[in-house]
Design a protein around this nucleic acid. Sequence first.
DNA 1: TTTTTGATAATTTTGTTTAAATAGTCAGTT
DNA 2: AACTGACTATTTAAACAAAATTATCAAAAA
Lengths: 205, 205
Amino acid sequence: MSSGSDQQDIKREKILDAAYQRFLHYGYSKTTMNEIAGDLSLSKALLYYYFPDKSQLYIAVMRKLAGEYVQDLQNRLDRLDDLKQAFAAQIDLKHNFIVKNYNFFDFFRVNEQNLPDTIWEIITEIYQAELVLLSAAIKAEADKGAIKPIGNPEQIVDLLLDALHGVRVSAVSFKKAMFPQKEHLDEIHAKRLLLLDIFIKGLTY
Amino acid sequence: MSSGSDQQDIKREKILDAAYQRFLHYGYSKTTMNEIAGDLSLSKALLYYYFPDKSQLYIAVMRKLAGEYVQDLQNRLDRLDDLKQAFAAQIDLKHNFIVKNYNFFDFFRVNEQNLPDTIWEIITEIYQAELVLLSAAIKAEADKGAIKPIGNPEQIVDLLLDALHGVRVSAVSFKKAMFPQKEHLDEIHAKRLLLLDIFIKGLTY
DNA sequence: TTTTTGATAATTTTGTTTAAATAGTCAGTT
DNA sequence: AACTGACTATTTAAACAAAATTATCAAAAA
């Protein structure tokens, strides 16, 4: 699959790690290629030997993160057989993923409307993986007879994920609800479970 | 209630109408006070006699729109006794409200995270009105025996509104989380109706 | 007294130039 | 093949002026 040598792959990984730390700590635009190279005691020119440009380096890190996230999700869902738990796990994992890498994603916020196609591909891959895994969970639940068989599970999963992500702290104060406080996490969690409960009941019969 | 004369109120209304047309057509930042005054063949200085500044004028228009929206919702719900129809009406009205005034709300998109408190108050008022009206619809439905009695209808309405609020264009684009593009509104609308359908089924029995 | 305006001040936005920072290249070394 | 120092090309930032727009106010009109 990959064309380079083992040594090259190892160095690539080291560069990805260093780049990730910088991007995570300072964001994309405040990270310079010189700094990444400096962290590894390498010349900047070498980075361009391994990666065509800065954005491609960023994208490679992004791709790695995405892979890890999907792998985590898969592992987690493999150990669950309850539909409600499956969705709860997805919400939980994604939330942590975004919170942990918040600064890393400043690239997204800055380039708002014109993200590179490659980024969209990665996002789509994540989304597709979630769709597949959770659709499987729905089918399994239908096979158990817990809910009625569903013609288009992907559509239902898409909808439910949207709905769950919409849940915020007592909507009276939208204002600072962009990133919820820790003490509110329980409330959000409870609301999501309630939503799951009602939604899944709505699928039943 | 209002302290000015009738004549003053009439002129205020005319200014609000002219301002609304400009804001709607060109957005907040590309509308100048001179243009609004020009539309009414008045001097710009007179606008400042009736409104303290441009943003207050905008907010006054917003408040008027909000009032009309709540009034419309109330009228519409008064003529319905079915719960699903009630929420469908709310979704429909809100959808039209946002589509119709899409350009007017560019102020929201530009000032993304730091909207004036007054704007948030208006948003909260709309939300509270929706909460009251839709809770009443839920109670009515429970009285009919169509759904099981619900201890805390406001909680359910809050949850459902959150869920509906979370609905976005096929999750591939979570970038435009704050304000969706116009061409996507119809897709969002359809997804919300589906969510509504499942949710209300989930309340039944 | 209330409503209205022209003239003007104050502020914000826009455009322009220049300097600095950073991305990216390449001939040549290890 | 892996790597670098020195170089060029682009992008960003700062500083400033010009233009556009908001906002004020003394005075006129109703």
